[in-house]
Amino acid sequence: MENLLLLHGALGAASTMEPLANALQERFKVHTLDFTGHGGRPLPQEPFSMQLFVQDILRLLEEKEISSTHIFGYSMGGYAALSLAQQHPQCVKSVFTLATKFSWSPETAAKEIKLLNPEKIAEKVPAFAQALATRHHPQDWKQVMHKTAEMMLYLGEQPDLTSDVLPQIQVPVHLAVGDQDNMVSVEETLWAYRQLPKAQLQVLPATRHPLEAVSVDKLNQEIRQFISQATVSI
Rank of each mutant, 00 (worst) to 15 (best):
W104V: 01
I121N: 00
I113V: 12
A110Y: 11
K124E: 09
F102G: 00
T134G: 10
F128V: 07
S103W: 09
A109V: 09
T108K: 02
A131S: 08
K120P: 04
W104N: 01
W104I: 01
I121P: 01
V125C: 14
L132M: 15
A110C: 13
F102Y: 11
K111W: 08
W104M: 02
K120H: 15
E123P: 06
E119C: 01
Q130L: 13
I121S: 00
E112W: 12
R135D: 09
P106S: 04
E119Q: 10
L115R: 15
E119N: 06
E107N: 06
N117I: 09
A131H: 04
A129D: 04
F128A: 07
P106Q: 06
R135W: 07
F102H: 03
K124D: 06
A131L: 09
P106N: 03
E107C: 04
Q130N: 14
L132H: 03
K111L: 11
A122Y: 04
E123H: 11
L132K: 03
S103E: 15
A110E: 15
I113Q: 05
F128N: 01
F102Q: 02
A127F: 05
K114M: 07
P106K: 08
E123Q: 14
A110R: 15
K111H: 12
A133V: 09
E123S: 14
W104L: 00
P126L: 12
T108E: 02
Q130F: 12
F102S: 03
S105W: 04
K124L: 09
L116M: 12
E119K: 04
S105H: 05
A129M: 08
K111N: 10
W104E: 01
S105F: 03
P126K: 12
N117W: 04
K120T: 14
I121C: 02
S103C: 11
V125K: 15
F102C: 04
W104H: 03
K114A: 05
I121L: 08
P126E: 11
P106M: 04
I113H: 00
E107I: 06
N117V: 09
R135E: 13
K114F: 02
Q130E: 15
N117R: 10
A109F: 05
E107K: 12
E107Q: 12
A122P: 07
A110H: 14
N117T: 10
W104P: 00
P106E: 04
S103Q: 13
Q130W: 12
S103T: 10
F102K: 02
P118E: 01
K120I: 11
A109M: 09
E119W: 02
I121M: 05
A131N: 05
E112K: 10
A109S: 14
L132P: 00
N117P: 08
S103R: 14
E123M: 11
S103N: 15
L115V: 07
K111C: 09
I121D: 00
L115T: 09
K124Q: 08
